[in-house]
Each structure stands twice: as C-alpha cells, then as structure tokens.
C-alpha cells in the first residue's frame, strides 16, 4: 500500500462489527495502523468513524471483532476485552474528543498533571508516601511538572500554564487536549477531528505538531478528520468509511483518485475531480454538510 517496507502494525482491527439495536454502525471493518505512521480515518458524517474510535479506546464494546494492540517490545493487548481506563493505562492508547473535554476548572498545568496520574500514583505509594511528604514523591511530581512544561512549550501554551483551561481560546484548548493525551505517554494517539474549528493558520500549526509527534516521540497517530488540508498533507495512510463499511484503504494519492471515495463524498464522476485542483476544499465541505446516515449522534 505505502510501498515502503512494512514497519509492522501497532493496531490491527479485524472484522469489527458494532450494532446498536437494529442499527449496524460498523460492519465487518478490518484495517491496520502501522507503527510510526499517521493513519487517517475519513468518511461522510455518520459513517461510523467515532464508533470505531470508541471501540479502540474501550468506551464501546464491539459486537464482534478483534482489536489487537502490539507494542514494539512484542507485548500485545486485546483492546476489546479491556476496561476503558486500562486501554490507556496498560495498552497505552490515548485519545482526544470531538467536543473538547478538558478539565475546565483546573489550570492548564493541572490538566497535564492529571494525565500523568498513574505514574504519580505509583510514586506517591498509593498516596501514603505523598501524605507524609516523602521526597520520592516530590521528585516524581517535579518530573511530572517538567514533562508538562516541555509539552506546554511544544504546543505554545507555556505562558498560560496557570490559567484555567476553560479560559483558553478554542484553538488553544484543542492543542492542550493533544498535549494532555501525549502526557499519558501513549504508543498510539487517537485524535477525533483535531482540526475542527481551527483557522487555516492554526490548522497548519497542528500539522507541524502532529508531524513532530510522529518523528520525535515515535508515537503512531490515528485521526478522524474532515479537513482535507490536514488529512492529505500529513497522513501516510488513509482508511475511508461509508455506512460503517470500508470503501477504500491506501495512500492519500490512491484514496483521492478512488472512484468509490469520490462517489461517496460528492456523487460526481472522475473527470470533474481531476480537472479541478480545488476539489479538496469541496470534499471537506461536502463531508461536513451532506447528511447521509440516520445515525444521529456521532459520539
């Protein structure tokens, strides 16, 4: 598909099916997320993208199917059999939300400290050493603060570390949510529409950030996105869903020219797509506007 040497899968989704009552939200979906790559999950509204995310991160239990997370050291985890918090704590899958879920009454720094909960909890000796104020815990907390400060610098929020997260502008909240997810030290980072509501400049910054996460943190990324300027520029590999089924899977170039994808988004024929370079914009808008599915809530 990418043509490169297969670097090995970090997440394998096999025959994933999710039914809510009579509605089949995801139908027999299989795909791979490769190690060290950015994988995009796209599709029209209601295609089941967020449902797939919720299965990967343990919030939903799949009706059938197998979700396997494989770390570089060979350890593997069956995500569909784990509680949601264990998916993050043990299998090290972190996620962000389509509608931002920050701890708005806590400071930016505190948000990042909460993300390092499990590490700090261990250092505090299940709170006993912490209550007694032993130095081991203080060192751990200083370390956690340093890590948080490092991430705040990377997402350009260092100066606002002591402000309430709820006071930040929208774009900054999106960045903070990514930084918070990264503070859990994930192997796979799942982003649900990270560019939604961002202006073009912020969108470009987001691209830089995600590329730097792939390069310097060696974290693989799976992202849902409607903004084609993000998807086509940074994704190594794209999976397209429609009505809960995979209709295309490959590099951005392959997906872009796949007639089934074009039909799903626009319902127009190939020649029109190829003749107009600005079609990418149209594609993203159509993805956001055409109501194609009866599944109302996407989360």
């Amino acid at each position: 598909m990418t043509g490169a040497v297969n670097p090995g899968s970090v997440l394998t989704v096999e025959h994933l099916t999710v039914r809510f009552g009579g509605l089949t939200a995801v139908n027999d979906l299989s795909f791979d997320v490769r190690h060290g790559q950015i994988t995009g999950l796209i599709g029209p509204n209601g295609a089941g993208k967020t449902t797939v995310f919720n299965c990967i991160t343990g919030f939903y239990k799949p009706t059938t199917g197998l979700l396997t997370m494989t770390h570089q050291n060979g350890k593997s985890f069956y995500l569909d059999r784990m509680a949601d918090f264990q998916v993050t704590a043990k299998a090290r899958v972190a996620r962000t939300f389509q509608n931002i879920r920050l701890f708005s009454g806590m400071t930016v720094l505190e948000n990042l400290l909460v993300a390092q909960h499990n590490m700090l909890m261990q250092a505090s000796g299940m709170s006993v050493a912490g209550v007694l104020g032993l130095p081991a815990y203080r060192h751990a907390e200083d370390g956690a603060k340093e890590r948080a400060a490092e991430w705040l610098k990377r997402v350009n929020l260092y100066d606002r570390a002591d402000d309430a997260a709820g006071e930040l502008p929208y774009g900054a909240q999106r960045r903070l949510e990514i930084a918070r997810a990264m503070c859990t030290d994930p192997v796979l980072l799942c982003l649900d529409e990270p560019a939604a509501g961002l202006n073009p400049r912020e969108s470009a910054e987001l691209n830089e950030l995600l590329l730097s996460i792939r390069e310097s943190d060696k974290t693989s990324i799976l992202l849902i996105e409607h903004d084609m300027s993000v998807v086509m520029k940074i994704c190594d590999h794209i999976v397209v869903l429609e009505y809960g089924q995979k209709i295309s899977d490959g590099t951005p170039e392959q997906v872009k020219s796949d007639p089934r994808v074009i039909a799903a988004y626009l319902g127009v024929d190939d020649s029109e797509i190829e003749s107009k370079p600005e079609i990418a914009e149209l594609v993203s808008e159509a993805g956001a506007e055409i109501p194609q599915h009866k599944e109302g809530g996407r989360s």
């Binding site: 949601d84 701890f103 009454g105 806590m106 505190e110 909960h117």
Partner: peptide, 20 residues
C-alpha cells in the same frame, strides 16, 4: 496528590478521566 487531582478531575469530566 494525584488522588486529589483525580477527584477534582472526576468532578470536571468523568469521561475525560477514563480516557487518561
């Protein structure tokens, strides 16, 4: 301590807590 911060985080957003 982390446990206290987790309490407050729980008050703010339980789902986000689990995602962390």
């Amino acid at each position: 301590l982390p446990v206290g911060r987790a309490w407050e985080a729980l008050r703010e957003d339980e789902i986000a807590c689990r995602s962390l």
